Amino acid sequence: MLRRRAIGETVEQIQPDLIIPTGRRKGCGPSLSSIYRALSEHDKRQAYPEAVQAAHADFAALHQRDRSPK
Rank of each mutant, 00 (worst) to 15 (best):
M1I: 07
L2M: 08
L2D: 12
L2I: 05
R4C: 14
R4I: 14
R4G: 15
R4F: 07
A6P: 00
A6T: 00
I7D: 12
I7M: 10
I7R: 04
G8S: 08
E9R: 02
E9S: 05
T10H: 00
T10D: 02
T10S: 03
E12I: 15
E12M: 06
E12R: 06
Q13A: 13
I14M: 00
I14R: 00
Q15F: 02
P16V: 15
P16W: 03
P16Y: 04
P16K: 03
D17F: 08
D17A: 14
D17M: 09
D17L: 10
L18T: 15
L18V: 15
I19V: 15
I19D: 00
I19N: 01
I20T: 05
P21G: 03
T22Q: 09
G23T: 08
G23I: 06
G23W: 03
G23V: 07
R24I: 02
R25K: 15
R25H: 10
K26Q: 06
G27M: 05
G27I: 12
C28I: 14
C28Y: 09
G29F: 01
G29E: 01
G29I: 14
P30M: 02
P30Y: 02
P30E: 01
P30S: 05
S31V: 15
S31L: 05
S31A: 10
L32G: 08
L32K: 14
S33R: 13
S33W: 02
S33T: 15
S34T: 13
S34V: 11
I35T: 08
I35C: 04
R37K: 13
A38I: 02
A38F: 03
S40H: 09
S40T: 11
S40A: 09
E41K: 08
H42K: 09
D43M: 03
D43R: 13
D43N: 08
K44D: 13
K44Q: 14
K44E: 15
R45K: 11
R45I: 00
Q46I: 00
Q46A: 04
Q46C: 01
Q46G: 02
A47G: 03
Y48N: 11
P49C: 01
E50L: 07
A51V: 07
A51T: 10
A51P: 08
A51Q: 14
A51L: 10
V52M: 10
Q53W: 10
Q53K: 11
Q53H: 07
A55T: 09
A55Y: 13
H56G: 01
H56T: 05
A57Q: 13
A57Y: 12
A57P: 05
D58P: 01
D58C: 03
D58E: 13
D58W: 07
F59I: 04
F59H: 11
A61H: 09
A61R: 15
A61K: 14
L62A: 12
L62C: 03
Q64G: 02
R65P: 00
R65Q: 12
R65W: 09
D66E: 11
D66N: 04
R67P: 05
R67S: 14
S68D: 13
S68C: 04
P69Q: 11
P69L: 12
